[in-house]
């Protein structure tokens, strides 16, 4: 696991007595986009949320196996979950900006981590993040407007800007386009292309075309198991597993 940014070893997740993820192992490198696909309830979102320990907030969730970020055990007692989540950012299915100004939305992460010493530093960080999220030109004149006044697609890019403002190493995206129209979706996909190489990106999607468009490698989940994980082109043109083939050709899902 030399160049793996994130690597999972025999990871299982339980909700109470129910096994939601069953013995999943995979490596994700620092400069690729990995897509998770699979039918609803296959565990792909659950697995995504175990990567930055967002499952900690669910009372009866339990994780077995190890997840390593740069070789550090994410679930080790010494791991500071706050630091972990700052290093592994997340974008959610439904855009969820804070009911604060656009500026405050982006500045929140840097301010709680004390990343800016002066107001000027902060201005630069906010502008930088908004530029990288492709939102700067649209909002530069109204940074004081509430984040909730933006359109859905803009809100989602604001959430991406918020995530990259703390300069994470990995960004997890949980079906980031499922609540957006096709034009906004295209804009986000373009953005993912631009962000590739700078951050390792993991994206969960329902939309197989999207997976094919944005990712280099694709993982197919079914019933809590990792069925197949390989180069996106292989998965979509020449899957090894019968189940993968059935799913991507639309037999079920």
């Amino acid at each position: 696991m030399t160049d793996a940014k994130l690597s999972a070893r025999n990871v299982s997740v339980f909700y109470g007595a129910t096994r939601a993820i069953d013995d999943v192992s995979m490596d994700i490198t620092r400069d690729e986009v990995v897509a998770f696909i699979g039918p609803s309830g296959c565990g792909k979102s659950t697995f995504l949320r175990t990567l930055n320990r967002m499952n900690d907030t669910v009372a009866n969730a339990r994780v077995e196996g190890t997840i390593l970020l740069d070789g550090e055990d994410v679930y080790a007692p010494a791991m500071d979950v706050v630091e972990l989540r700052a290093r592994v950012g997340m974008v959610f299915q439904k855009p969820n900006p804070f009911a604060k100004s656009i500026y405050a939305n982006v500045a929140y992460g840097p301010s709680i981590h004390g990343l800016a010493r002066h107001r000027d530093d902060m201005d630069r960080i906010v502008e930088d993040a908004l530029r990288r999220a492709g939102l700067w030109d649209e909002v530069k004149d109204r940074l004081d407007a509430s984040g909730t006044t933006l359109s859905g697609g803009q809100q989602q890019r604001l959430c991406i800007a918020r995530a990259i403002a703390v300069d994470p190493e990995v960004i997890l995206m949980d079906e980031p386009c499922s609540a957006l129209d096709p034009i906004a979706t295209a804009r986000i996909e373009e953005l993912i292309h631009e962000l590739r190489g700078r951050y390792a990106i993991v994206i969960v999607t329902h939309n197989m075309q999207q997976a094919a468009r944005v990712s280099q490698r694709t993982a197919f989940f079914n019933l809590g198991r990792l069925v197949e994980f390989g180069a996106t082109s292989d998965i979509f043109t020449n899957p090894v597993e019968e189940r993968t083939k059935d799913y991507i050709t639309g037999r079920y899902g």
Partner: peptide, 12 residues
């Protein structure tokens, strides 16, 4: 030292 401990506890 910001570079070493980017996300550690803050002085405050």
């Amino acid at each position: 030292r910001p570079a070493i401990q980017r996300f550690g506890s803050l002085p405050v």
